[in-house]
Each structure stands twice: as C-alpha cells, then as structure tokens.
Design a protein around this nucleic acid. Structure first.
Lengths: 154, 154
DNA sequence: CTTCATGCAAATAGTTTGCATTCTT
DNA sequence: AAGAATGCAAACTATTTGCATGAAG
C-alpha cells in the first residue's frame, strides 16, 4: 500500500462529503505533514511544505490544516502559548500529554484515573463534559541527565 | 483592615525585593484587578482600570499583571485560545478547572485523583514534574436548563 | 541625580480575510 | 459554466517594545 494511502482516502472522502475540491496543494500539505514528526508547529509545517512546492502559500497551509482537523487527521494544540502545533491524530491514541520545558518534547499517556476524575467531577458538578485537556509540564528523563547528554537548549 | 491590604503589602514587598518602584499606577491596577471577578480577560481589566484612571495605558496594565503573576497575586490562563485571562490567585486554591463552552464561566475543583495521576505518570515516565494544566470543557448546569433560564449566548 | 516607570506610538507575531485569478467538477 | 481554491497582500488581534518624558528612591 502506498504511503499515506489511508489518510489520503480519508481526506478525499471528507472533501467529497463536504462538496469541496480535491487539489494538488491539499495533498501536498497532507503528505508533508504526515512525513514529518508527530508534532509540528506552523512554521515547521510551512518549511516542509515549501520544500515540496515553493509556491504553496501559508494561507493555503493554514486552511488545509483546519480541514485536516475537521476530518480527524490532525489535532491542534497550544502547549506553548502563542505557538499552535499540530499532532498526527490516529484513532486509539492517548489524549494526555507530558511536555518537556527544556527540550519541548511531547510524550503521550493515558491513564484510567483520568477517566475516573472526569466522571466524578462532571457528576458532582452537574457538568456535561465535552472534552478535556491534561498537560503535565516538567523535565523529561533525557534532559535530567548530565549536561553533556542533554538535547540542545534554546 | 483596609481592603486588599494583604495583597498591596505582597506587591510592595515584591517591588522592594526586586528593587523596583512603588507607583500609584501599579496599585490602581491591582485594586481594579482584585475588586473585579475572579477571572478577567485583558480587555475587561483595561476597562475597569481605566474607570479609575483614564490615562493609565494598556502597556502599563500588561506590565503590571506580569508583575502580579511573578509575586503570586495572579495566575495566567489561556482557556480560550487567544484570550489571556487572569485569576485572583490565593494560597490554597484548587488548580483544576471546568470551563463552560456556552457561557464561559469557570469553576474550580481539585481532586486527590489528579494528584495520583500525576505521581503515577511522572514516576513511570521518569519525568520531573513542575506544573500541570487540567481543564474540562463542556456545558455547565445552568446552561443545560431550559432555554429561558440560560445566560445570554455570544 | 540616578534609575526606573509611564504613556504613547510603532513594531511584532500569529493568524485570518478579501479579492482577482486559476483550477475542479 | 459554476463553484471553489489559490496566492498574494492587506487586515486583524493580542501583545511587546522603543523612546522621550516624568516620577520614585
């Protein structure tokens, strides 16, 4: 199976469903997004998209990512305020995050306890829960090691 | 005891400690902040500060709030992406939030389970935890009622 | 009298939008 | 041919900064 076949089909299906158009640009953006790291900021995305097509403008990239979010191929985050980042969003992935404040690396986790907290709180406070955000910030294990082995700081 | 005496002293102490200056503006901003609701966005703060002093500019307000955050009198949030909001931050307050997506109201809670999740995850993933953010989004109880009783939507 | 803060305007950052042109269907 | 997408520049929002003037230590 060709790379990203599944995601391309998902995109095409979404476009057809919404009576939108299938364009080369949208597929270029999707491929650049998917072949990059699981988490990428807008500027990183712009850079890698433009490596494939210099003329592809940033508005198209913004608009495409919004589309990907709509059809579940991407998930938008604001871990560091002011810098949107997009995650490759698969089906059964965890929805909770550890963010390293030293190197910026994001790790995912999920814990049954989180589910329990949500249920308890929303029941007690009579709140109809729709979504949640759980982000733990700190220093990841590789950044805790001796200075020599740390990823570069910025 | 005069209103906000405790907070004014905390601010003055912080200023002295950092060899910064005690100014009328800073105290005006602090009073306007504290006499308002527990959560306020920047524009709301600007409005209520300028009710007390028309000439007090928004850069001073931004700079003051940053100061309050530094000395623990305020806590910065980004519940709705793109709209910073500041909380009156007391000592023993909970650190977890329920945000109503209909009326924007924020309720606080804390659960021992959250603590447990943090400990478990940071131990398992060898992560040195510094802070966390837990936000539950949904519809609060008053917004679930019959249409007539709902707070205005925007 | 030195250092810091203020107030204003301009700069910046990130993102969105308007519109003429071009591509899909 | 009709409707939608692109690419560009301009608009926008939220925030930060530079700098001359004024106030605090």
């Amino acid at each position: 199976m060709a790379p990203f076949e599944r995601e391309l089909s998902a995109l095409r299906a979404h476009l057809k469903r919404s009576r939108l158009k299938q364009t080369a640009q949208r597929e270029t953006v999707l491929k650049a997004f998917l072949e990059g790291p699981r988490y990428a900021t807008m500027d990183e995305l712009v850079a890698s998209v433009q490596k494939r097509d210099r003329k592809l403008g940033f508005s198209t990239i913004y608009r495409s990512l919004k589309l990907f979010v709509e059809c579940g191929l991407a998930k938008e985050h604001h871990f560091l305020y002011g810098k949107t980042c997009f995650e490759h969003s698969g089906q059964g992935r965890p929805h909770d995050y550890l963010v390293c404040k030293n190197c910026g690396k994001v790790e995912e986790f999920s814990s049954p306890l989180v589910q329990a907290v949500q249920e308890k709180v929303s029941r007690e406070m009579d709140f109809k829960l729709q979504e949640h955000r759980l982000e733990l910030y700190g220093i990841c294990s590789s950044c805790q090691g001796p200075k020599e082995t740390r990823p570069e700081e910025d």
